[in-house]
Nucleic acid binder design. Structure first.
Ligand SMILES: [Mn+2]
Ligand SMILES: [Mn+2]
Ligand SMILES: [Zn+2]
Ligand SMILES: [Zn+2]
Lengths: 132, 132
DNA sequence: CTCACTTTTGTAATGATTACATTTTAATTA
DNA sequence: TAATTAAAATGTAATCATTACAAAAGTGAG
């Protein structure tokens, strides 16, 4: 939990207690949790916690470029890794794994015309343990 | 609209009037429409049309491998192209363009462990006309 | 302490999708 | 052809993640 306030400040985010808790959670759980997962884990130790706060905090993090948001299965998942990489999602159990694949660069003619902000490369399938 | 019944039959789909209409729409509109778009266009010429039918039909098409489903912006979009390719979506106007990029193949060790069913490569950004 | 501002909370609304029961249509059989 | 059965289409209600919005609680400067 140390140094977290520094990181938040570097991204122009005032490090409140809750924001630090949420960021700390993301740092320690790189399995791309959704809002509900984060809420369910933090709620017991923060009895007053509201799910709206989790939403607000994550929106702020995304806006400030601190975390990446990936929409899979009609749900937003949050990833503390901001460098481009790919994902695998098991359509049976929902687990999301990191893949060290860098998405291909766009043709220069598109880069000139469009302003690209994010690239998402996802492989869908069934993981090893779900195949049995 | 000719030959559509053949294509449906080849994919083990009984070519009803509505199924042919939906497929015909997808064939003529490759801009990756969502359910609502398809419904709004077909409803005027088919007064009894139900949105549930559009859902049912598209689910069937996907199940039979006739069309591809891509989830962007919390919405399902349908693509008559089934060969792998990438997409660009403008986050301002929502338009979805095809990109002739083939998503990179997975490392063999993953291919062996997982059963990959679909790959989705999407570039998000702002299109030329929305930048003004 | 007071005031202004930020953060957090609670509740209601939104909107795409799904579940499910009913009605309509098509195909099969007698 | 009429009766029976199966398939397709429809209508309505439920689901559920997300958002909108207003109120409450906390923070920090003067
Ligand atoms: Mn990741
Ligand atoms: Mn496409
Ligand atoms: Zn799995
Ligand atoms: Zn645009």
């Amino acid at each position: 939990m140390n140094g977290i306030d520094q990181i938040l400040r570097q991204h122009d985010i005032k490090p409140s207690y809750l924001r630090m808790k949420v960021f700390d959670y993301l740092k320690q759980h790189m399995d791309h949790p959704d809002v509900d997962k984060i809420y369910k884990v933090l709620a017991p130790e923060i009895p007053t916690l509201s799910k709206t706060t989790i939403y607000n905090t994550l929106h702020l993090f995304v806006e400030k470029g601190l975390v990446t948001e990936l929409i899979l299965n009609h749900q937003k998942h949050y990833d503390i890794r901001t460098i481009p990489h790919a994902h695998f999602q098991c359509t049976a159990c929902g687990q999301i794994d990191d893949l060290e694949i860098i998405p291909p660069a766009l043709d220069p003619k598109y880069v000139a015309a469009w302003q690209i902000n994010q690239v998402q490369l996802t492989y869908f399938g069934v993981c090893a343990s779900c195949q049995k």
